[in-house]
Design a protein around this nucleic acid. Structure first.
Lengths: 149, 149
DNA sequence: CTACTTGCAAAAGGTTTGCATCTGA
DNA sequence: TCAGATGCAAACCTTTTGCAAGTAG
């Protein structure tokens, strides 16, 4: 991670922590570490993977229960989102400004991210047409990736 | 279910059973019942719900293990598909000719089905652009339904 | 006949929860 | 100070599996 990215994260973290306090919750080292791992991870991690990463990268004895509680908390705070890959575990990723979707290989479970403006626009239309207040959407394409064909 | 629908199902079942035999698997009363329940269900059922429905509607003592095994079998045979509603269980539905997607209320978990040609076309394009051989896709929109707003 | 299926119960995951202890604001 | 957070282990739920018995082709 570059210095610039690091700075960007620090800035986000600061703002986030203010919000956490304002809502009456507490900031902890554990939460910071989990968030940092998610922020800088290129992959979509499971709770167990996050636990191990935090333990390894921060030399910290974090329990998986804390990780799950934090993940649920972050999801409610709308800074991360979860993803069903179909391998039996929930996977998590930091929520970035620009929405993107996923293409998953049914053979090797590789995940490719993509974003498509048409799809973004269309889901808004579909939601409106059905009287839904749009909160989020998931578009996942399943198929065989180039390596597995 | 009307007589016409019943007829349609019988016809499908007949064809499907031929395919099952041809592939070297066996047809059983249990499989027939599960398939019938899925075919005529308006809702997206969990394995447990399917088990109870079969037990009740056909007065049959089916085990949930059989239901799970059959569901996995049907999914591989490509006649049903599974759906992650976010309530901790996999839900299943019969695969109809015309693909459709889902809109799920984050409050009451109600599921509304919709289909949109633009989305159908676009996912094909996206898959091609990334060298994927398309198998399937899921587009799920999350939001608040009219009743829950 | 023989390989596929079934039902039961046990096992196996992943996720949540109770509780005593700890800690941030 | 004290409500919220943590770590541990136990509990929970859904799904899978081993095995002996049953059954379709």
């Amino acid at each position: 991670m570059t210095k610039k990215e690091e700075k960007k994260f620090e800035h986000f973290l600061e703002e986030f922590k203010t919000l956490v306090t304002k809502k009456g919750f507490k900031n902890t080292v554990q939460k910071d570490c989990i968030l940092k791992v998610l922020y800088f991870s290129k992959e979509h991690l499971s709770a167990e993977e996050i636990t191990k990463k935090v333990q390894k990268e921060f030399d910290m004895d974090i329990g998986i229960a804390t990780v799950y509680r934090s993940l649920n908390f972050f999801e409610q705070m709308n800074v991360i989102e979860s993803l069903d890959v179909g391998d039996g575990t929930k996977r998590f990723e930091f929520k970035v400004e620009q929405h993107h979707d996923h293409m998953i290989c049914t053979n090797c479970h590789k995940i490719i991210e993509f974003s498509d403006d048409f799809i973004e626009l269309n889901q808004i239309k579909v939601a409106e047409k059905n009287g839904f207040i749009l909160e989020d959407h998931i578009m996942t394409i399943y198929g065989l990736c180039e390596d597995c064909q």
